[in-house]
Nucleic acid binder design. Structure first.
Length: 384
DNA sequence: CGGTAACCTGGGAT
DNA sequence: AATCCCAGGTTAC
């Protein structure tokens, strides 16, 4: 999964000509005012040697693992910007805030603010990002009533939550994802991220605020190609250009899609170069409150033909069939179908599959062994 | 309009 | 070692 060496985000060929914006150094605009006293020791801990005010460290969120499992939420494909910085700990940015989340012994989640312009704003942004207004437990109860397989999976994989990301950030990440693999997507996203204001370093990873459209527009297609983006380079620059041309700004335009119906939002997103049905659904579900958007990729296609539309097994994935799959999910799971799909998708990931009792993905033997073994989830809730 | 090849790249399989 | 194939797709014939 983490095939990355923190220091080198991407190979950086020599600048062919003095570029207006070198990916390596993006410190023109002043980041957070650095501490006036610079310690000579490079590895000084962030001990408050000059700040008398004791800064509370880890703050409990009152969110338990049935509502939020970090390992099932952060490294499972919704975002490529959060890094694992501890056993049950992930670190990333939300807007201008840099923070870590981790599970306590009892499964509860707590957070630690590494940097923020405003502590209160950071907490609000965190709660919004985590979509805490939506009760995962209640949703899953309903899904489970209508789908016994979901019910079984839900017992083992608690807390797989859908995040509420910033639309621009989400869009650019999934532009990178097309016909690509996780490792390279992560490297590309790291490269883009490095264009934003540096917010701090945790566990050997550097964290940056996601670059604004204005900063993104300073990067040329050629620079992106040299950074290894391939044909996706023109998707990025093209989409940024279109967004920049919106009357009220691209960020605002994207946010306005939160108020539209799903199909309208999808259609609007698909006008952007590099955004097709799959990427549009990802953006809609992960950042635009479109809870019944279904990102149909090769994985979901496999799942759907196995459990939902067996009559389509063997067919190729075409745009037409994409919507068939999406419809099937929505008619089975309802207005939060995207949240149901998220769990099914995660259950199908190799990393999770290996941990699940084998009968889940052995569809063949349905009657052979009726193991109604509710407690067969050995990995259940081991948050200590 | 629905079905098929290119498209960048790098890692793993053959 | 040289190719082929594929990976959370989109676009262009």
């Amino acid at each position: 999964m983490h095939s990355l060496k923190p220091p080198l985000a991407m190979k950086r060929p020599r600048p062919p000509s003095p570029p207006p914006l070198s990916p390596a150094s993006t410190k023109q605009t002043s980041p957070p005012p650095p501490p006036p006293l610079k310690s000579l020791h490079p590895n000084t801990p962030p001990i408050s040697s000059k700040k008398p005010k004791s800064h509370p460290k880890w703050v409990p969120l009152n969110l338990f693992q049935t509502e939020l499992s970090l390992p099932l939420t952060f490294p499972t494909g919704q975002t490529f910007r959060w890094k694992q910085t501890g056993p049950l700990q992930y670190t990333g940015t939300i807007g201008p805030h840099l923070l870590s989340l981790k599970h306590l012994q009892n499964g509860d989640v707590s957070y630690f603010i590494h940097f923020t312009p405003s502590e209160s704003a950071a907490k609000l942004a965190l709660l919004d990002f985590l979509n805490v207004g939506i009760s995962l437990v209640k949703l899953w109860e309903v899904f489970s009533e209508n789908d016994s397989r979901f019910a079984e999976l839900a017992k083992c994989l608690k807390g797989a939550r859908v995040l509420r990301q910033d639309p621009v950030e989400c869009l650019v990440q999934f532009l990178c994802s097309s016909n690509n693999n996780i490792g390279r997507i992560t490297k590309m996203v790291d490269f883009i991220s490095s264009l934003g204001t540096h917010l701090g370093s945790v566990g050997g990873f550097d964290f940056h605020e996601f670059p604004s459209l204005e900063r993104l527009s300073a990067v040329s297609e050629e620079e992106l190609r040299q950074a290894g983006f391939g044909y996706r380079a023109k998707y990025i620059t093209g989409t940024v250009d279109v967004l920049q041309s919106k009357p009220d700004g691209g960020a605002q335009w994207l946010l306005s899609l939160r108020k539209l119906d799903l199909q309208e939002a999808i259609d609007a997103l698909c006008t952007l170069p590099g955004v097709g049905p799959k990427v549009a659904a990802c953006i809609a579900l992960f950042s635009l409150d479109q809870h019944h958007a279904i990102p149909v990729d090769t994985h979901v296609w496999q799942i759907a033909t196995k459990y939902l539309l067996p009559e389509l097994a063997g067919a190729r994935l075409t745009p037409k069939l994409c919507s068939r799959v999406a419809e099937a999910f929505v008619s089975k799971y309802g207005e939060y179908a995207g949240w149901a799909q998220t769990l099914l998708f995660i259950a199908d990931l190799p990393s999770q599959k290996a941990l699940l009792p084998s009968h889940f993905w052995d569809i063949k033997e349905k009657n052979s062994a009726k193991i109604e073994d509710s407690n067969s989830c050995n990995i259940d809730g081991n948050y200590s």
